[in-house]
């Protein structure tokens, strides 16, 4: 996972760099929770640009991180979600609580 943080915006971007299944979620979960708790961001963004595969394990994973973020008052969004993955999120109504936003509004470079 690549981690970017912009201090002045209190923006934490977590770029997932692997396929998301039951096997990989454990590690993603641990790292993401650690970063969210450590940085106390106002806004957390999951970047799915490098995620080519996700099964239902991803649903529990993002909802779990949404809970972690909510506890510290941060909002959560997702970017670069490809169609096959969006389909899975749509089936469960995840997108109503964690919306997919356009990439342009983000910081232009790594921090």
């Amino acid at each position: 996972m690549n981690i970017k943080y912009k201090d002045e915006d209190k923006l934490l971007i977590l770029e997932i760099t692997e396929e998301i299944d039951h096997h990989t979620t454990e590690k993603i979960r641990r790292l993401a929770d650690y970063e969210i708790q450590r940085r106390s961001p106002k806004r957390v963004i999951f970047d799915f640009n490098s995620v080519v595969f996700m099964d239902s394990a991803g649903i529990g994973m993002v909802i779990g991180r949404y809970k972690t973020a909510s506890m510290i008052g941060a909002k959560m969004e997702m970017i670069n979600v490809r169609e096959s993955i969006r389909k899975i999120f749509e089936m469960t109504g995840v997108l109503k609580i964690i919306p997919v936003v356009k990439e342009e509004i983000l910081v232009e470079e790594n921090v």
Partner: peptide
């Protein structure tokens, strides 16, 4: 059943069979 899981502690969503069926 959608959202039924016996392993909520593992953050399982209970959507597995629903996804398979669709």
């Amino acid at each position: 059943k959608p959202l039924y899981t016996s392993k909520a502690e593992l953050e399982r969503s209970g959507m597995g069979f629903t996804i398979i069926e669709s």
